[in-house]
């Protein structure tokens, strides 16, 4: 226990980095994922194909490999950025197809009659999706999206293997420095992750339960 209290500033600095990765990558992934989801339902066939191929490829690549690409191959292409930024890019690219899939399954869950009614009123694609389908899909989309964000929180730990000093790296260093208190050190790290994931999980579960009954 003393180990944790003595090293609290280091824990907090790692936690800050984790939060920073989470927020930046989360927002970027939401934007990128929305674009991909729009592509996948759009009337233009080539966009649909591109969206589908992108989703398949990224989803089937391990995160470790994506981060490897960002940290070691991107500098070859002329990118001169910090490792934190590379990690953010990698995490947002990796998370975006999951966001897109969550959005798409929400849109698919809206009864077909809604879209048909909208179209029969003469609304175009943008109007049908924007005014009729998406507002209804929204409530179904939020719990899965929260789950994607929870997964992202946990995935930020992988960035610790690629030269980013965040919570996991701090945990590793402290565990190496305090060989006699490894369990306490790592439980301390776990607590910080749980601080983010558990409230989000409970929130998602609540919403899910509430909206299941509502239908």
């Amino acid at each position: 226990m003393d180990v944790i209290i003595d090293n609290l500033p280091r824990y907090l600095s790692g936690f800050g980095m984790t939060l920073q990765l989470l927020v930046v990558a989360g927002i970027a992934a939401l934007i990128l994922g929305t674009i991909i989801a729009t592509m996948r339902i759009s009337p233009v066939p080539s966009l649909r194909v591109f969206g589908a191929v992108y989703t398949e490829l990224i989803r089937n690549t391990p995160l470790t490999l994506v981060l490897f690409f960002c940290a070691l191959i991107l500098p070859y292409l002329g990118a001169r950025l910090d490792y934190e930024v590379f990690a953010m890019i990698g995490l947002s690219v990796y998370t975006s197809p999951f966001v897109a899939e969550a959005l798409r399954s929400g849109i698919n869950g809206v009864p077909i009659g809604q879209a048909e009614a909208a179209r029969s009123l003469g609304l175009g694609f943008g109007q049908t999706v924007g005014y009729v389908v998406f507002p209804q899909a929204f409530r179904m989309v939020i719990p899965p999206l929260i789950n994607v964000i929870i997964a992202l929180t946990k995935n930020t730990s992988v960035a610790g293997g690629f030269f980013v000093v965040e919570l996991f790296t701090i945990g590793k260093e402290l565990a190496n420095a305090n060989g006699n208190a490894v369990v306490a050190v790592l439980l301390g790290v776990a607590t910080f992750y749980l601080l983010i994931t558990i409230p989000l999980g409970i929130f998602a579960g609540r919403l899910e339960k509430k909206w299941v009954v509502a239908r």
């Binding site: 994607v148 929870i150 997964a151 946990k154 995935n155």
Partner: peptide
């Protein structure tokens, strides 16, 4: 939805 990556995630 829980499968995003490490649980995928």
């Amino acid at each position: 939805a829980r499968q995003a990556g490490q649980g995928s995630i």
